[in-house]
Design a protein around this nucleic acid. Structure first.
Lengths: 138, 138
DNA sequence: TGACTTATTCTACATGTGTCGAATATATTC
DNA sequence: GAATATATTCGACACATGTAGAATAAGTCA
């Protein structure tokens, strides 16, 4: 039941690496501390989110069901580790955004970026630098 | 009740221009045909989605409640129009992606773009072109 | 060992979203 | 004007997600 995509008819297509808001918050902590216990994650998100332990634990258990996290049990302790890395998650998030908002085309997105206050002059410059500094890309 | 953001405690922050998957599909048709009837939208999405009329109508009514669409009644006909434009919607989608996957920083995102197969050589070129062709921005 | 401190399990509930069918109201057309 | 085609309104249901309390199991320490 790991990482399946139940789409019997427009249900929910769980594309590889699609995280919800809460999942992102948790995943970020896991990437940083894995393998780690639910309590550790809760502590890390204490101020930022103020979630109860059970909230964090429930969500993490659900993430295990989805194949996003895995558990390594040590005595009575459950140590969680991620099953996807940040790049994969970022890719999923980026792809979703791209297909929804720009019909999957990157050029329009960059156009949008440059035309909107969304991106500052410094960022335009960064973009320019990064893009030009990158020679042939694999 | 238009465009409010009920966030009494980590509830759901309906940021201006945050659309769900179904809403995006509908919104795209509306942007193209507005003002238009629900039936028109259904027809347009017939092959692509195969939604029943009521599915489309229900979703559109909910979008009206959220302030995403507005209705102009002509006799017994309801003509829908969007309350946000594509740029606003794109901005919302982009921002969400950026904060989730890149902690809100554009530079890392571009870096990611360049480093991943997510972006083909042609795209890198497009990127380069667009970025360099754009002189001082605003 | 008993008190105290975690962890884990289970159960639950509210709201959002995807999806419709049935009933009803309006038009259109012969 | 009756039959037919359209729209609108309502109510519903399933599943996902956010959020958490209560009960229980285990480990720690004086």
């Amino acid at each position: 039941m790991v990482n399946e995509k139940r789409n019997s008819k427009g249900k929910n297509e769980t594309a590889f690496g699609e995280l919800t808001e809460a999942e992102w918050a948790i995943m970020k902590v896991v990437w940083e501390h894995q393998p780690c216990a639910a309590g550790t994650v809760q502590d890390a998100l204490a101020t930022e989110r103020g979630w109860a332990y059970s909230t964090v634990k429930t969500t993490m258990d659900r993430m295990v069901d989805k194949g996003l996290l895995k558990i390594n049990k040590v005595r009575n302790l459950q140590l969680f580790s991620s099953q996807i890395n940040r790049t994969q998650a970022a890719k999923g998030e980026f792809s979703k955004m791209l297909s929804r908002a720009f019909d999957g085309a990157i050029a329009p997105m960059v156009q949008f970026l440059v035309e909107n206050e969304n991106i500052s002059e410094e960022h335009v410059k960064e973009l320019r630098d990064i893009v030009s500094k990158t020679g042939r890309n694999k």
